[in-house]
């Protein structure tokens, strides 16, 4: 993993969760990701965003089940638990914003990227390739893993997202 990419991903993830989700990191690290099911035994939720440009690949955010309603409620400014659709929408937007912020930090602000709409699905991300950068964030109300995959020149795809394991 490139140190520059790891730092850029870490910074973008922290900034996005703080400013968009009003959630602050209590414990975070980059270069490692949490393995296995969430402590509660419920399914994690993953949002993936594909991007194309000078670099192509995918950014994946996997949130613990307790984090998802907290993020959505904070973004909406509501005390009641938002609907599942709103929770998925919130995580998709978080992944989109992290992606939009990390790419210029890595490739430069003179580069143009095309970012696809987020895809949200139940489960962890099932990797077939090693991420170029990974961040694990312990947040006030749960935890999240953020993975950045860069597609190698000539390969057709990175791997699949949102498949349970």
């Amino acid at each position: 993993m490139s140190k520059k990419m790891g730092k850029a991903l870490h910074k973008a993830a922290i900034l996005t969760f703080e400013e968009l989700g009003f959630l602050f990191a209590t414990d975070d690290q980059y270069g490692e990701q949490e393995e296995g099911p969430s402590p509660a035994g419920e399914a994690n939720i993953s949002a993936s965003v594909r991007f194309h440009g000078p670099l192509s690949g995918m950014l994946v955010v996997t949130a613990s089940p307790d984090l998802l309603p907290a993020v959505a409620a904070n973004m909406l400014g509501e005390e009641e638990i938002p609907s599942l659709a709103q929770q998925y929408d919130s995580l998709g937007e978080i992944s989109n914003v992290i992606c939009g912020n990390v790419l210029p930090a890595i490739a430069g602000t003179d580069k143009v990227f095309h970012i696809a709409a987020p895809v949200v699905a139940e489960g962890n991300y099932a990797e077939e390739t090693e991420p170029a950068a990974a961040v694990h964030l312990g947040l006030e109300q749960g935890h999240a893993d953020v993975l950045l995959f860069i597609r190698a020149e000539g390969s057709r795809r990175t791997s699949r997202a949102g498949t349970g394991r």
Binding site: V97, G100, L103, A105, T109, D110, V112, F113
Partner: peptide, 21 residues
């Protein structure tokens, strides 16, 4: 979330203000 300065300038030239996510 647009991070490309070139695209941001193009939008500003069209009279749009810009707020970054």
């Amino acid at each position: 979330t647009e991070g490309s300065q070139a695209r941001v300038h193009l939008l500003q030239e069209k009279g749009a203000a810009f707020v970054h996510k």
